[in-house]
Design a protein around this nucleic acid. Structure first.
Lengths: 207, 207
DNA sequence: ATCACATTGTGAATTTATTCACAACTATAT
DNA sequence: ATATAGTTGTGAATAAATTCACAATGTGAT
């Protein structure tokens, strides 16, 4: 089977959010052009994506929202649940903890880490906080498989290395630096400065 | 002239950071393969990117770091400077303000906005904070051309509409929702949940 | 001077992503 | 029953991004 493109996965996450909102409003069906406009895409793209994940609709009624949402859940969620470690309990780390807490039953931030004694052994946004020295121990004990990095740039590579050592296979990095992982580990860096600089470039160009 | 691809602009931001670090270390020259490995790319990609922005090196010494950095500055920076408005002074907004403050002389967060009276009329991370009601007034007065959104999802579209109304041409959105802007306005949504869900999908798939 | 060699610059090829365009379909109206 | 209209599903076309591959180059060694 052909692997599902990363871009399609990204859009699935967006579709799911839209669909959940529609379900709350009591909507039952949706056409590709509606889902497209609600998720800033094109109808053809939506149909192609749903084809890729093997979901089909009906020519007259479009897609049944609940079924589609369930198919996306099945694609994206691990039925056993997945746990996340977050290292760096600064403003950014807290923003993510806050936002995530209790929102996804199948995907929870199970532990947060920092080196500041003020934060250690507290519970912040419902999440237990540990000293970074305990990373390995806790990740193994809790069976954590996803790592988030919200530390300053300086210490980030060391955290990644520890993540990798414990067997974590997917990392999202918000530290403003380029990190290196071995083959087979998924790493995505979400560079805040970069996105603002890019916007600035377009603001300048469209002036 | 062909427009510079968005992806190339993103990489320029990364290259610049790497180059600035190297300059501080006193390095003078760099080869495409070195810059590639320092920025998680390929040598061919680096050469292609530099070709696109019209920078050239020498076969034996590679690229002169200072010249290359200056060419990137010239490409990315507006010599007159550019000002940014940020709306939503929560953890995420503060993380961005904190990180950005004083780091880019040509790109500054000139004003922050919120509806919480606790935050209004204070100076946070060196940045003056106003009530969201004053968005239009301040943006025009300060000649702000870039907008950041770090509010909850609910109010975000209204903020975007105000940004657009004041003539802002580039917006970066961190609110977990899809936003709509008219043709000609650059909008990039950086969806935190989406990036974590994507990582979770890969963690599950690589298990 | 000349040579040797690792690198640049880039046209061409390839891969990946998106969009087009239309046959096939299905719920509804007649 | 049959026609209709607006949709889906998808092969084919197109566009965008990346990588290949190699001639041209320029520097230091001899």
């Amino acid at each position: 089977m052909i692997p599902i493109p990363e871009k399609t996965i990204e859009r699935m996450s967006r579709y799911r959010r839209v669909l959940n909102n529609l379900l709350e409003e009591g909507r039952k069906h949706i056409y590709s052009h509606e889902l497209a406009s609600l998720s800033s895409g094109t109808p053809a793209q939506v149909r192609r994506d749903l084809m890729i994940i093997g979901h089909s609709g009906s020519p007259r009624n479009g897609y049944e929202i609940k079924l589609l949402r369930n198919d996306i859940n099945e694609l994206m969620d691990d039925p056993e649940g997945q746990k996340i470690a977050l290292t760096g309990i600064g403003y950014l780390g807290r923003a993510i903890m806050n936002y995530f807490m209790g929102r996804r039953p199948k995907l929870t931030i199970a532990a947060a880490f920092d080196i500041d004694p003020e934060k250690i052994n507290r519970v912040i946004s419902g999440c237990r906080c540990y000293h970074t020295d305990q990373l390995e121990e806790i990740i193994r004990k809790e069976n954590i498989t996803i790592g988030i990095i919200t530390t300053p740039a300086a210490g980030a590579q060391k955290i990644v290395d520890t993540y990798v050592k414990t067997g974590i296979k997917a990392i999202v990095n918000w530290a403003p630096t380029i990190l290196h992982v071995p083959e087979g580990v998924f790493l995505e860096t979400r560079d805040i400065t970069m996105s603002i600089e890019k916007a600035a470039f377009f603001a300048k160009t469209n002036k």
